[in-house]
Structures are given as C-alpha cells and as structure tokens.
C-alpha cells in the first residue's frame, strides 16, 4: 500500500512469533514492570480476533477467569510481548469470534482442529524456509 509507511513500520515487525490464527489457544508472555523490577506474566486464552497491518497487527485473547470473561489486546510488535506459545488450534468458521462473548460454559468451547485443513500460505512458506535451513 503506502511504501513510506511500510518503511517506517518494518523495523518493528517481528519475525520470531509463531504463525497465529483465530481460534488458537495461546499463552502470551508479557513483560510487566513493577517499580524497578521486571517480571513475566502469562495470559492464556483463545484468539478471538486478529488485526493485520504492519507493526500495528494485534490479537485479542479471551479467557474466562473466575467465571468472568477477560479479554486483552496484544500489539504483536510490542517489545513487552516476550513470546507467544500456541497450545492448540481451533476448528472455526469465522474470522472474528466475538460470538463467544455471549456464550458461557460448555457452549463457549471451540472444537480442536485436526490437520485436515491445509495450512495457510504463511505457514507453508514458513515450513519451506525451515526445511531449507
């Protein structure tokens, strides 16, 4: 799109994160500053939205904590995001899983995806570069 904007954003885009998809259950490790100390906090939940766009890409992760729904938006290029682990993939039919907000208990579960579905182009590219290396 706008090459100048891409140019400004590109130094901040990270390549060390795994391929993420909506419906995945992830553990996000974030750096938290407490006074002068720094520690790592882990947030585990389902990705209900993935917003693309250079260094502005973000994921919204939802979990239910003590029967209260909690959602956090993580900017993927942020240096405060240490790492992201993908625990499992979900079988989903929508790009945004906002409907989960209205569901609770058993209804709010997502079926796990077995690898019947072909991997995305991004994942295929990644696998290719890995085998070459």
């Amino acid at each position: 799109m706008n090459t100048v904007i891409d140019d400004v954003e590109s130094p901040y885009v990270r390549s060390d994160l795994p391929a993420l998809r909506v419906g995945d259950t992830v553990r996000v490790h974030t750096k938290i500053r407490e006074g002068t100390r720094e520690r790592v906090q882990i947030f585990e939940g389902i990705i209900i939205a993935y917003k693309k766009g250079g260094n502005r890409a973000s994921i919204t992760v939802r979990k239910v904590s003590h029967s209260v729904g909690v959602e956090r938006v993580f900017p993927l290029s942020s240096p405060t995001v240490n790492k992201i682990e993908v625990k499992s993939h979900g079988q989903i039919r929508r790009a945004k899983l906002y409907y989960l907000r209205n569901l609770s208990g058993k209804a709010a579960r997502i079926k796990e995806r077995t690898d019947r579905r072909p991997p995305s182009t991004k994942q295929r590219k990644k696998a290719k570069t890995e085998t070459v290396a």
């Binding site: 706008n2 100048v4 400004v8 954003e9 901040y12 260094n55 900017p75 290029s77 942020s78």
Partner: peptide, 12 residues
C-alpha cells in the same frame, strides 16, 4: 505522508 505507530522506550 501518513499515520502509523512506533515503539520507543517501552511505549507505543
């Protein structure tokens, strides 16, 4: 030219 964001000194 346009609008975006950067990360600097722990802030977006």
């Amino acid at each position: 030219l346009g609008v975006t964001q950067i990360f600097k000194n722990g802030a977006r």
